[in-house]
Computed example of a mutant assay.
Amino acid sequence: MRLQVNVHEAKTRMSELLARVEAGDEVIIARAGHPVASLVPVAEPAARELGFLDGFTVPHDFFEPLPDDELDAWEGS
C-alpha cells in the first residue's frame, strides 16, 4: 500500500510510519502536497564470500610468539 503524508505529519508519526514501511508499505513524504521523498525498506545486501581465501587454513601455531631471531628482524634489532 502507498501512503502520502505531509512533512509535519511525518515528523509527528515517524515511528508509526517506519513500522508501516517494515510491514511492506511505501510512505511518500510531501511538502505542500508535492511528493518530495519516499520511505521504503532497505534492501539487505547479498552475502559475499571472499573467493581468494578458498582452501586457506590458519596454521596451528599462528598465534604463538615469534622466535627471538625473527622478532628481532621485525623490530629492526
Score class of each variant (00 low, 15 high):
76 G>Y: 04
74 W>Q: 09
55 G>Y: 01
56 F>L: 14
72 D>V: 05
34 H>A: 14
56 F>P: 00
11 K>I: 09
59 P>I: 01
9 E>N: 07
52 F>L: 12
39 L>N: 08
23 A>N: 08
49 E>W: 07
67 P>S: 12
49 E>D: 13
66 L>I: 04
37 A>D: 09
4 Q>Y: 01
27 V>F: 00
7 V>Q: 14
48 R>F: 05
58 V>G: 00
39 L>S: 09
3 L>T: 15
27 V>C: 03
37 A>I: 09
33 G>Y: 04
43 A>T: 15
15 S>E: 14
11 K>G: 09
21 V>L: 03
16 E>Y: 02
24 G>E: 04
3 L>F: 03
32 A>T: 10
67 P>T: 10
66 L>Q: 05
3 L>A: 10
51 G>C: 02
54 D>Q: 13
45 P>R: 12
60 H>I: 04
75 E>N: 11
43 A>P: 11
19 A>C: 01
18 L>K: 13
70 E>T: 11
66 L>G: 06
45 P>Q: 09
29 I>G: 02
67 P>D: 15
7 V>M: 11
49 E>C: 04
6 N>T: 08
66 L>K: 10
7 V>Y: 10
48 R>G: 05
32 A>E: 15
73 A>K: 07
41 P>W: 01
16 E>G: 12
8 H>P: 00
48 R>I: 12
38 S>G: 10
65 P>Y: 04
28 I>Y: 00
24 G>S: 04
77 S>E: 15
62 F>T: 05
4 Q>S: 15
72 D>R: 13
38 S>Q: 13
5 V>I: 11
47 A>F: 05
29 I>T: 06
22 E>K: 14
34 H>T: 15
30 A>C: 09
5 V>G: 03
36 V>A: 14
28 I>P: 00
6 N>G: 09
40 V>L: 14
33 G>E: 06
30 A>W: 00
39 L>T: 11
17 L>D: 05
54 D>S: 15
25 D>M: 03
72 D>I: 06
57 T>S: 13
1 M>G: 10
7 V>K: 14
4 Q>R: 11
55 G>L: 05
34 H>L: 12
47 A>T: 11
71 L>G: 04
74 W>K: 13
58 V>M: 07
13 R>I: 00
36 V>E: 12
60 H>W: 02
67 P>K: 10
29 I>S: 02
37 A>M: 12
35 P>L: 07
62 F>G: 05
20 R>D: 07
1 M>R: 15
28 I>K: 01
12 T>N: 07
60 H>A: 12
1 M>Q: 11
38 S>M: 12
19 A>V: 05
53 L>A: 14
29 I>P: 01
45 P>G: 04
17 L>W: 00
29 I>N: 03
38 S>H: 07
59 P>W: 00
8 H>D: 15
55 G>V: 07
9 E>Y: 02
35 P>V: 08
66 L>R: 09
73 A>R: 09
67 P>V: 11
60 H>N: 08
65 P>M: 08
14 M>Q: 05
64 E>R: 08
15 S>W: 00
52 F>P: 01
71 L>A: 15
21 V>K: 02
13 R>G: 01
62 F>W: 10
26 E>R: 11
74 W>Y: 13
30 A>R: 04
41 P>F: 02
76 G>L: 03
59 P>Y: 00
39 L>I: 10
